[in-house]
Design a protein around this nucleic acid. Structure first.
Length: 507
RNA sequence: GCUCCUGUAGUGUAGCGGCCAAUCAUGGAGCCCUCUCGAGGCUUCGACCCGGGUUCAAAUCCCGGCAGGAGCACCA
């Protein structure tokens, strides 16, 4: 049958089809929405989680897993757990819990339940005891380097084959603090000869005497993430786990715990790594920069923290759209600031009123006219929002344009002040009418301010400050972001005392 | 070295055996409109890693290369 149809040729096939069912020839409209793929077995609700280590506030990289999980919980219904993984007392910042909470809230991530692992050590101890008594874990007293070297050669260390009774006894002494840090660990057995060296026996509990910011010196035995994550994901009833593919091997290790305990496994998804160019993300470096006085704080615009983005005038919806459209593929990806800028511009362009900001102002007095008047809409697409009105007259007709435009003015011999008038170059400059047709001729049209302007400072993403003047109409502005025409979008930080302070968003 | 994962335009994605001379976004180029270097409109540039195989038909399935990434911590 198929062969017969093929034999008659494409044109004949088309004609034939046209006669029988023309609708088949109409190409279906492609769905252009870039929704996330469906999750298996999610009908009826999901339980998912975000598991940050509280070492500092969230950065742009963390927003992906947060938003992905949040999106799915919103789609299927269920619970979104935020679990603070503070099981390394050397890397816990007591302020981070609250900062992360704030960051999530700003991102619009709706956390329904919150857990802190340092409250849950007893759970990890109980599971480990059970693993040991079932012969699936052991207490190891070997030197860490030796133990690792043996694993490399697919060999078991002497502790691995110790009788269960002895292991249980050692375990109680281990929890009781009888051993020094680094002298003993609890280990989960997998398969010492496993072809993948990353999956062979892994440490479940270690000893740490560094006081924990939340629990002080109450505990000396600290769980490693492969134990605590498996235990918590099970106890918290996780149905789906989404995380970076750097955890692929951790998933394999954790599956041993599930199997030993007879637990049902959640469905695991691993997305590829994100490379975020030209952005400072390392918490330790930012922390150091703050301590050294190099950075103004966790929201310093030179960093990639969520609070820095917020300060710059990004909208959380833009960040969300970025990750949703990016999907969940396992391929590693490059983060594109250009794309995020574009998505953010989509949102703020409409709500941002326009003003003239003149960087590095150069003064010009105007001759040849008694007074000048003009007006410009706050937003070209929204005339209902009103206008900025200009009236220049009286003693001196003075305006300021940016140093950059001033150079062009001198070069070209003429310039147009947008929404006001044309000028011929000179000191003073000479009024040259208000004929708009000069624009067609290619005359540069620039923003300007009068003597009634106020000082302004725009903090740029590289940490420098653009200083200049902004028209005083901005003092009545109530929106969060504005667009300085021909300069870019900015978020208003403060107005009133002193200069208007703004933070550059993007072009 | 071992193990795992992944390979569609510059970037990110859609497609998952015939509708693909491959989608959308972003980006580049150009034009129109607008008194912004913003927005909008239009045009245009640009990709299925390579080689075999299966099949009437492969971006889509299989095998082999190659390339990139991750892990092999008493961090998460």
């Amino acid at each position: 049958m198929v062969a017969e149809v093929n034999a008659i040729g494409l044109d004949a096939q088309r004609a034939e089809l046209e006669a029988s069912d023309p609708s088949l020839l109409v190409r279906e409209k492609k769905e252009k929405t870039h929704d996330l793929p469906d999750l298996d077995g999610a009908e009826g609700g999901v339980v998912m989680r975000i598991a940050p280590g509280p070492s500092g506030p969230l950065h742009i990289g963390h927003t992906r897993v947060s938003i992905l999980n949040d999106e799915y919980v919103k789609r299927y219904g269920g619970r979104l757990i935020c679990r603070y993984e503070d099981t390394d007392p050397d890397r816990v910042d007591p302020d981070a819990y609250e900062m992360i909470r704030e960051d999530m809230e700003w991102l619009g991530v709706d956390v329904t339940d919150e857990y802190i692992q340092s409250d849950r050590f007893q759970e990890y101890y109980d599971v480990t005891r059970r693993l040991i008594s079932d012969g699936n874990a052991y207490v190891c007293l070997c030197d860490a380097d030796d133990w690792r070297a043996l694993k490399e050669e697919k060999k078991a260390c002497p502790c691995r084959d110790r009788p269960v009774e002895e292991n249980l006894e050692l375990y109680e002494r281990f929890l009781g603090g009888e051993f020094a840090d680094g002298k003993a660990v609890a280990v989960v057995k997998t398969d010492v000869a496993h072809p993948n060296p990353a999956v062979r026996d892994f440490v479940a509990l270690r000893l740490v005497r560094t006081p924990h910011p939340r629990t002080g010196t109450k505990y000396v035995a600290y769980p490693m993430m492969n134990l605590s994550v498996a235990v918590d994901d099970h106890l918290m009833g996780m149905t789906h786990v989404i995380r970076g593919k750097d955890h692929l091997n951790n998933t394999h290790r954790q599956e041993y715990v599930y199997d030993y305990m007879g637990w049902e496994k959640p469905r695991f998804y691993h997305y590829g790594l994100v490379n975020i160019p030209d952005t400072l993300l390392k918490t330790s470096l930012i922390r150091k920069g703050i301590a050294d006085g190099e950075y103004s704080g966790w929201d310093d615009v030179r960093t990639g923290t969520v609070r820095a983005l917020r300060k710059r005038g990004f909208r959380p919806e833009a960040i969300r759209r970025y990750w949703v459209e990016g999907g969940m593929k396992q391929i590693d990806v490059q983060f594109s600031w250009d794309t995020l800028y574009s998505m953010n511009r989509d949102i703020i362009d409409d709500v941002s009123n326009r003003y003239f900001f003149v960087r590095d102002p150069v003064r010009y007095d105007i001759d040849g006219v008694d007074s000048l008047a003009g007006e410009a809409p706050l937003h070209l697409d929204h005339p209902e929002r009103g206008v900025r009105e200009y009236a220049i007259g009286g003693r001196g007709k003075t305006i300021f344009i940016s140093a950059e435009d001033s150079a062009v003015f001198a070069e070209d011999g003429a310039i147009r002040l947008k929404d006001l008038c044309n000028l011929e170059y000179g000191t003073p400059a000479k009024y040259a009418g208000n004929d708009l047709s000069v624009i067609k001729g290619g005359m540069r049209v620039v923003q300007w301010v009068s003597r009634d302007s106020v000082e302004a400072e725009v903090l740029m993403p590289d940490g420098t400050v653009a200083r200049g003047l902004v028209e005083n109409a901005i003092l009545r502005e109530t929106g969060e972001t504005v667009q300085f025409e021909r300069f870019g979008f900015a978020r208003i930080e403060s107005m009133g005392d002193g200069p208007v302070r703004a933070v550059f968003t993007h072009r």
